[in-house]
């Protein structure tokens, strides 16, 4: 995830500077993100083997959809992408389920010292805001009104929350061996 974020941010900035858009990188990173999140939630969420496999398959299917829509339906330069919205829904739902599973099987460690709490909080916060903002962008692009500044501010804020939460996850995960859920 760190490598993915690092590469996609750098490529995005590079393309923005060279061709005035980061869209191709944005579409490609969506494909990888679907797979990565599918794998992450496959290992994290305590479910039966069948349901975990379903999450993994869903992740791969969404990744394939990202490629197909990027190449044949929306094109690589279209923004906002359908796949980004699908990814937001996928990650938000899985994060909520991760919260639920944490309540179902609590551990003695204080909540703020649990890596997965920060991971789920950051993911839910960022991806539900992204889903909302992408929907609003779509509306704005169809109308003559310009995108208001607060929209970018909200995205920046959500980005800071996400990176802050992920950084905390990495620090906490490095300190302790993270528990993953054994298949039932």
């Amino acid at each position: 995830m760190i490598t993915l974020i690092f590469i996609s941010e750098l490529t995005g900035k590079f393309l923005q500077a060279r061709v005035d858009t980061n869209s191709p990188a944005y579409h490609v990173s969506l494909f990888i993100q679907h797979i990565c999140f599918g794998l992450l939630f496959y290992y994290l969420i305590p479910l039966t083997n069948k349901l975990r496999a379903f999450i993994l398959i869903l992740g791969f299917t969404l990744a394939l959809t990202a490629i197909l829509t990027g190449l044949f339906y929306q094109g690589l330069f279209t923004f906002p992408s359908i796949s980004a919205s699908l990814l937001s829904v996928f990650v938000s739902v899985c994060s909520i389920y991760l919260f639920y599973s944490m309540i179902k099987s609590p551990v003695n460690t204080p909540l703020l010292k649990q890596a997965w709490f920060w991971f789920a909080s950051g993911s839910l916060f960022f991806y539900s805001i992204t889903f909302f903002v992408l929907g609003y962008f779509k509306l704005l692009l169809e109308s003559p009104s310009p995108v208001p500044d607060w929209c970018y501010d909200l995205l920046h804020f959500a980005n800071f929350v996400l990176y802050g939460c992920y950084l905390t996850t990495i620090i906490l995960a490095a300190k302790s061996k993270l528990p993953t859920h054994e298949p039932r």
Partner: peptide, 10 residues
């Protein structure tokens, strides 16, 4: 809710 669940678990 998690705090409550933790107390119950304890």
């Amino acid at each position: 809710l998690y705090k409550k669940a933790q107390l119950r678990f304890e």
